[in-house]
Amino acid sequence: MRTKTIIAVLLTSMIVVGCRAVTGAVVDRRAVAQESLFSLAGTLIKDLFDNYQDFSMESFRAKVAVDFVSSRNDLVNNAASNIRAAKVLDIDFSLDQVLSDKDLLMVDLKWQKRTRPYDSSNVVLTEGFTQAVFKNVAGQWLLYQINKDNPF
């Protein structure tokens, strides 16, 4: 109980300090226009899927951040194995949400992928919901994280 009280007092103090310490600075923290973020997100996702379909290890690797969570090598190797196992016929997607936080861009998307495994004559349809996070590294947006279904 006492610990909770201390935490509450500490948090309240910080809020008060945060609210009162600043009384006038140049505004540059406006949210980026949502439509611009959607346009950017659509371009990044399409570019990533095109790159995956026209896969080479080096070019796909170049789209993924060095500090990709949790492992860039695992993602790239997994993608390379899947490309080796099945021909990707097409991938379609629609954006659900696009959020930004400092140098990160989070994109929620639904996707449908059609593949033709080399060892089968059946066309396989897969679909999923992915949360892809891009990171701005020296002006270039690189894939930083993938949550939920991995389309690669």
Partner: peptide, 26 residues
């Protein structure tokens, strides 16, 4: 959002990002 250069008060959908192990989620 209500924000100035230093402070941001945000309500709605946002990307919560702390450190890698702790928080990174919409």
């Amino acid at each position: 959002q209500v924000a100035n250069e230093r402070n941001l008060y945000q309500f709605g959908d946002f990307y919560g990002s702390f450190s890698q192990f702790v928080l990174g989620s919409s």
